[in-house]
Computed example of a mutant assay.
Amino acid sequence: MNTADQIKRLRHRLTAPVVKWLGKESRPLGMPRNDFARLCEHLVPADVVLVEGRSRVSGVIQSVTLSAWTHAALYLGTLEEVAARGSDVEALRRDGVADNTPILLEAELGEGVHLSPITRYRHEHLRLCRPRELTAEDAETVVAFCLERLGTPYNLRQITDLLRFFFPYGLLPRRWRSTLFEVGHGEMARTICSTLIARAFASVRYPILPTLHRGSDGGVVFHRRNARLITPRDFDHSPYFDIIKYPFFGDDVARYRELRWDDETAP
């Protein structure tokens, strides 16, 4: 084993317990607020799936971004479709993932960029964000851009930045606090998943939350935001992404008076 491999193995041994602790769930599982089966049926490649996380690291992201959405993943297609693109899906098949299972691409702390079946979020609160009027050609480019980054490792600085939030404010010297985590700047992207997805949409010049300025001729000029400043909530807030919801009672909301409530007292 060469020196580089020894250093890599040592880093993994040192960081793995910390990553496990940060990823541990800190809030109980609640009742999901969407029809998971219907959501899976209507997914389209390049859709962004937001997740309301419940781990310790999710709590940090929620406090800094002031949003419940702590994770973003990109929908690629079914396992069979992802395999047809040339991606290695044998590990997922060995885990029993069926060919018709929707597959997400995610960038996670401790995992790097990898593929996951959407079924891992079956019991979580999800939101589907669809880029409005994105062409099929550009959707293909967005998906390909992300697939080319499969296996990209996470940055060790992510762990140290996150751990600082578990010390009482003022206990650590101010100079030790990362500028990536100043409240109000939205600069959490080095630690969360949305940077890669934002870069993928930037590759086809599709807007998420651009800054607008007046040009010299008085016309509006779009200025692309740094992808590192994009957080999961920005896909929810973007006027260029449609929010697709699939409530449990489906499209029959007109029968809302027949819904079963715990309080049966008439108004």
Results as ranks from 00 to 15, higher is better:
85 R>F: 03
194 S>Q: 11
38 R>N: 06
195 T>V: 01
47 D>P: 10
175 R>F: 14
20 K>N: 09
57 V>K: 06
143 V>T: 12
230 I>D: 03
72 A>N: 05
23 G>S: 15
228 R>A: 14
253 V>F: 02
241 F>Y: 10
87 S>H: 10
264 E>I: 10
21 W>D: 11
112 G>L: 11
68 A>Y: 00
94 R>C: 11
39 L>F: 04
110 G>P: 02
224 R>Q: 14
66 L>S: 15
31 M>C: 12
8 K>E: 10
186 G>V: 06
45 P>Y: 15
93 R>F: 04
81 E>I: 01
169 Y>F: 08
4 A>L: 11
64 V>Q: 10
132 R>S: 09
146 C>R: 01
211 T>I: 12
115 L>Q: 08
224 R>K: 13
153 P>K: 01
35 D>Y: 00
67 S>C: 13
2 N>Q: 01
87 S>I: 11
134 L>E: 06
267 P>I: 04
182 E>W: 00
89 V>P: 02
251 D>G: 09
12 H>D: 06
18 V>N: 00
86 G>C: 04
26 S>M: 07
260 R>K: 08
78 T>P: 04
140 E>F: 12
48 V>N: 06
182 E>T: 15
25 E>W: 12
21 W>M: 14
28 P>R: 00
141 T>S: 07
175 R>L: 07
253 V>M: 04
175 R>Y: 12
172 L>P: 02
148 E>R: 14
220 V>W: 08
171 L>T: 03
178 S>D: 07
126 L>F: 01
28 P>I: 13
132 R>W: 00
250 G>W: 10
121 Y>G: 02
146 C>V: 12
46 A>T: 09
22 L>A: 07
17 P>R: 02
47 D>V: 07
225 R>N: 12
238 S>I: 03
103 I>V: 15
4 A>V: 04
143 V>E: 10
112 G>D: 06
21 W>L: 15
103 I>P: 07
107 A>L: 07
29 L>W: 09
194 S>N: 12
220 V>R: 01
48 V>K: 04
60 V>C: 05
136 A>T: 13
76 L>S: 10
34 N>I: 09
139 A>T: 00
243 I>V: 13
210 P>M: 09
92 L>C: 07
31 M>Q: 13
125 H>R: 14
21 W>V: 15
221 V>F: 01
38 R>F: 01
162 L>V: 13
50 L>Q: 08
103 I>T: 03
206 Y>I: 03
102 P>E: 07
236 D>L: 07
15 T>C: 02
109 L>E: 03
3 T>R: 04
139 A>Q: 12
211 T>L: 12
200 A>T: 11
231 T>W: 00
161 D>F: 03
49 V>M: 12
152 T>Y: 11
26 S>E: 14
79 L>S: 03
39 L>D: 05
104 L>Y: 11
91 A>T: 00
146 C>W: 02
108 E>Y: 00
37 A>C: 02
171 L>G: 00
23 G>T: 14
250 G>I: 11
218 G>Q: 05
74 L>N: 03
218 G>H: 06
204 V>N: 08
19 V>D: 06
209 L>H: 02
189 A>E: 11
87 S>Q: 14
59 G>F: 05
209 L>T: 05
